[in-house]
């Protein structure tokens, strides 16, 4: 892949970054999560797109 036009791809990366950061912030602010908090942080950081979505759907503990 020689030349990638970064003007096209950057918005995609920015969106992914926003999603991951929002999930991380939400996770850290949460009092309790289902399962250990560090595990969720790992999932959010390491799995792109689906990690944060997975966290938002099942992560926060409903008391």
């Amino acid at each position: 892949m020689g030349e990638i036009n970064w003007a096209i791809v950057t918005p995609l990366l920015i969106l992914q970054a926003i999603l991951a950061i929002a999930a991380l912030v939400n996770c850290l602010k949460q009092e309790e999560t289902t399962g250990p908090k560090w595990m969720w942080c790992m999932i959010i950081v390491s799995i792109s797109i689906f990690g944060p979505i997975l966290y938002f759907i099942i992560g926060p503990k409903k008391e």
Binding site: M1, I4, I8, V9, P11, L12, L15, Q16, I18, L19, A22, A23, N26, I49, P52, I53, F56, P60
Partner: peptide, 24 residues
């Protein structure tokens, strides 16, 4: 609970991936 953030962003990612992958 962050739904206002993750749902639109997830959709935007799914949406714009399509033209970008088709292009490349």
């Amino acid at each position: 609970n962050g739904k206002w953030i993750w749902l639109p962003i997830a959709f935007m990612i799914i949406g714009i991936s399509q033209p970008i992958t088709t292009y490349y």
